[in-house]
Design a protein around this nucleic acid. Structure first.
Lengths: 240, 240
DNA sequence: CTCAACACGTGATCC
DNA sequence: TGGATCACGTGTTGA
C-alpha cells in the first residue's frame, strides 16, 4: 500500500524533473522503489512476478528514453510518437546515406574515359600523394637526399648585360633531381625572368635568366653551389 | 468474455504467422476486435477506456513493429531489444554520416581550380584511399590547401605517333608551383623522354614527351589531373 | 467531463 | 520450475 504511494510520488518527482508540464508518466520511475520484502508467504509468486514486470517496464522506458535522446526533432514526448519519429529519422538517414553514396559513386565513375578500367590506380597514381605522410615529410624525403644526390656536371653563370645573369647547368638525371633543382632555385629567392628545364637521355639541362647585376654573378654561382651541396649532404642526421 | 477469447485466438494466429515459435505476444492483434456495443449503461466509461487503451497499445506495437522493420540486424524480437538495436543503429548511421560528410567537404574544397572544373572526377581517388583518416585531419587538410594550389590553365595531351605522347600544360606561376609540378610528374613514374619547363611573366609552361601508346593518352591526362588535384588538397602539416 | 497517456498488477505463455 | 515476456483491464492524472 504505502509502496504504491511512494512509487507514485517518486514517479512524479522524476517526471517533473525530466519534463515540466508535459505528460504525467514517463519518468524513469521505480529506480529505487520496489522494495518488496518478499516476506509474505502467500503472494510469493505474484510479488516476484510483480517486481519482474516492473523491471521490464522500467527497462523498456529507459530504452525509449535513450531513443528519444538519440533522435533529434522529437515532436511529442509520446511513446508512440517517439518511435514514430525514430522511424522517420532512420529512414531519413538511410536515404541520405544512399544519396551520398551515390554521389561518391558518381564521382568515382565520373571517369567515363574508357581505358582506365583495366588500370589499377593503386600503384600508378599517387604513390607520393596518397601516402599518409604529410607534406613536410615529403619535403623531408627529397631533402634528406642520401637517396640520389644531385650530380652536378657543369655550372656556368654569365652576365649577359641589361641586368641579366644567365645560369646554365647540367646534371645527370636521377630520381627527383628535377624537383630538387627547382627547390634550390625557389629557396634562393631570385628575381627569375624565365627558367627552363629540359631533360633528355639521362642528362638534365636547366637554364635560368635572372635579373641581377654583374657584380652579383660570382655570389650567385656560390649560392647555387652551396645550396646544392647543402641539399646533397643530409641535413638531418637521423638517417638510419 | 467471448471477446477476450476471440482476441486471444486472433492474437495467437497473427503471432504464429509473424514469427513461428518465438514469443507469445507481439501480434498486431485486435485489428478487428473490440466491437463493444457500448450499449451497456454501467460499464460505459470503462469499456470506452478499455478500447481506447487497446488502440493505444496496438498503435505502439505497430510502431515498434515498423521500427523493427526499418532497423537491420535485429538480434532479438524483444520490445526492449528492438529499441536498443534501433538506438545503436541510429548512432552508427550518425557517425557514418559525419565521416562521409567530412570527406565530401574535403573533396569539394579541394578543387577551387579553374579549368578542370568540368572534370569533377579529380577527387575520387584520394577519398577512398585515405578514408580512414581522422575527421580533424580532414578538416585541417581542406583548410590548409590555401597554401598555393596549382592553378591549371590548360592541359593538352596528344599522341604524336611513334609511341610518344606529348603533354603540354600551362599554369600560373606561384610559389612552389614548379616544384609541385615536378613532384607530380615524378610521382607518376612515367617513361619521360624529355621534359621542359619554362616560366615567364607569371605563367609557367611545361612540356613533357612521354613514351606511351595512343590508348594511354586519356588515362595519362586523367592521371595528371588527379595528381594535381590531390596535390592541391595537400595532407599538409598544421597550418593555422 | 471527456480524452489521451500512463503505470500498475495480473494471468497467460513459452523456454 | 522458474524466469522472461507479453496483453489486458483498471485507476489515475493533466489538459
Amino acid at each position: 500500500m504505502e509502496n504504491i504511494d511512494q512509487e507514485y510520488k517518486h514517479y512524479w518527482e522524476t517526471n517533473m524533473f525530466l519534463q515540466t508540464q508535459e505528460l504525467d508518466s514517463w519518468g524513469l520511475d521505480e529506480a529505487f522503489s520496489g522494495y518488496y520484502d518478499s516476506s509474505s508467504p502467500d503472494g510469493a509468486a505474484s510479488s516476484k512476478n510483480i517486481v519482474s514486470e516492473r523491471n521490464r517496464r522500467k527497462k523498456l522506458n529507459e530504452r525509449l528514453f535513450a531513443l528519444r535522446a538519440v533522435v533529434p526533432n522529437i515532436s511529442k514526448m509520446d511513446k508512440a510518437s517517439i518511435v514514430k519519429d525514430a522511424i522517420e529519422y532512420i529512414e531519413h538517414l538511410q536515404e541520405q546515406e544512399k544519396n551520398i553514396e551515390a554521389e561518391i559513386m558518381e564521382l568515382e565513375s565520373g571517369i567515363p574515359n574508357s581505358i582506365n578500367q583495366n588500370f589499377d590506380f593503386d600503384q600508378e597514381l599517387p604513390v607520393l600523394l596518397r601516402s599518409k605522410k604529410k607534406r613536410t615529410d615529403q619535403l623531408y624525403d627529397s631533402i634528406s637526399s642520401t637517396n640520389s644526390p644531385i650530380e652536378l656536371l657543369e655550372l656556368r653563370v654569365t652576365y649577359m648585360g641589361e641586368n641579366t645573369v644567365v645560369v646554365s647547368m647540367t646534371c645527370s638525371k636521377r630520381t627527383d633531381t628535377m624537383v630538387k633543382l627547382c627547390e634550390v632555385f625557389e629557396s634562393l629567392n631570385l628575381k627569375i625572368i624565365t627558367a627552363n628545364i629540359t631533360c633528355f637521355s639521362g642528362t638534365l639541362l636547366k637554364t635560368v635568366f635572372i635579373q641581377a647585376n654583374e657584380e652579383d654573378k660570382d655570389l650567385l654561382q656560390l649560392q647555387i653551389q652551396t645550396a646544392i651541396a647543402a641539399l646533397n649532404d643530409p641535413p638531418s642526421p637521423m638517417s638510419i
